[in-house]
Computed example of a mutant assay.
Amino acid sequence: MNKIKNIHILILLIFLISIGQMSQTIYVPSIFNIAKELKVNMEEVQKLMSGYLLCYGISQLIYGPISDKVGRKPVILVGMMIFILSTFLILFANSLELMIILFSIQGLGTGVGGVMARTLPRDIFLNYENLKKANGFLNMGILVSPLIAPLIGGIISNLFEWRMCFVFLLIIGILISTTIFIFLPETCTKKQIKNSIFGYKILIYKKKFNYYLLILTSGLSGIVVFESNSGVLLSEMGFSNIEVSILFILPIPSIFFGSWYIGFSKKSFNYLMWKSVILCLLSGFFMWLPGWFKIMKIWTILIPASLFFFSAGMLFPLATTGAMIPCKGSAGTAGALLGGIQNIGSSFIAFISTFLPKNGQFSIGMITFIIGVIIFLCWWKLSRLEKI
């Protein structure tokens, strides 16, 4: 494929990924209103994200191997049909239990974008340098869209009401599905080696792959913990819906700079990994430190969060590239395992965080620091194996 087609595919892929990521956080500024209408506590509304992410992850374990067998495009269209139907039904949900079920089904649909974010680039980029740049470009969309979504959601809910956020998602989902149906080429060629679901067994026994998987899962968990907890913390500090949505997106430039830096840096893979890993560890420390002294201000939350997002913007394309490079023949299966476990793991961490105290930033800081330690230890082991 020539360069223009590659860019064309990447742009379409960013749109596909964005709809799933936006669904995850567009309702965050409306958590108080949702809780009030459904007559539940705000902490219970956080379970919507946990259910969504769990099914988002599980579905990828199914989509990946199937896409290795039947092609990428049919699988994408089926996933989007599931998303469109569940989003439509959310408009009529009148209980938290029903919304959790529908959010989970929504995640089953959008999970197709998560696996294709790792699979399609591996289909069309054959060497490390090009794949690293492509993953850096994609991660700008992957990481930024769930943070822009609350701003959009805050504006929509202020002008109308919170259910209109899902009308917006429904319209965008239909437009994206139509565009993909018309313009997206099939990237999985007939000559490409096809793996069945049993291909997971081969990947699970690859030590390097598992270290990268744990790094990616930990990094995404840090993002999700911020997404699921910051809305509650900021609301309890007395900010309005629109103010929460604005504060929520302030770390966005950090993500852009992190992914942009990776895409254009000429430094070695190991050097860039060490830099991103150390920044993750430092951001966790700075997020946790104020909690020990019962201090919680806007800057004590947003500055460490921005540092973590910058490091995540670096970390995700690097670790994804390191994991996917050896997996040309089973890109769908490998991408599914990466995406599936990341989201299942992060949904579990987000669910655990709902039970922790919300009277300060000690809990979110503790989790972020533990995540930084895990990432550091994984890369320390990997750095002794990786020679890129």
Rank of each mutant, 00 (worst) to 15 (best):
I9F: 02
L13N: 07
I19W: 03
G20Q: 05
M22R: 06
Q24E: 13
Q24P: 02
V28I: 14
P29I: 01
F32N: 14
N33Y: 12
K39R: 13
M42P: 08
Q46V: 01
Q46I: 02
L53C: 02
L54K: 04
L61H: 05
L61T: 10
I62D: 08
P65A: 08
P65E: 06
K69R: 15
R72K: 13
M81C: 15
F83P: 06
T87S: 06
L96C: 03
E97V: 13
L98F: 01
G107I: 02
G107H: 03
V112L: 06
V112M: 06
A117R: 02
R118K: 13
T119E: 03
E129Y: 05
N130A: 11
A134P: 00
G136I: 02
S145R: 10
L147V: 11
I155T: 12
I156G: 05
S157D: 12
S157F: 10
L159C: 14
W162K: 10
L170V: 07
L170S: 07
L175R: 10
I176F: 02
I176H: 04
S177G: 15
F181M: 15
F183W: 13
K190L: 15
Q192D: 14
S196L: 08
F198W: 09
G199H: 04
I204G: 12
K206R: 15
K207V: 14
F209V: 06
G219Q: 03
S221I: 08
G222M: 02
I223E: 03
V225L: 00
E227L: 11
N229C: 02
L233T: 01
E236K: 14
G238A: 12
S245E: 11
I246P: 03
L247S: 11
I252E: 09
F256E: 06
F257R: 07
F264A: 06
W288P: 12
P290S: 08
M296R: 10
W299A: 11
F308V: 07
A323P: 13
A323N: 06
M324V: 07
S330R: 13
G332A: 09
L337E: 05
Q342Y: 01
G345M: 07
S346R: 01
A350I: 00
F351K: 07
S353H: 00
L356T: 07
K358Q: 10
F362W: 12
I364W: 00
M366E: 13
I371A: 07
G372R: 04
V373L: 15
R384D: 11
E386I: 11
I388P: 07
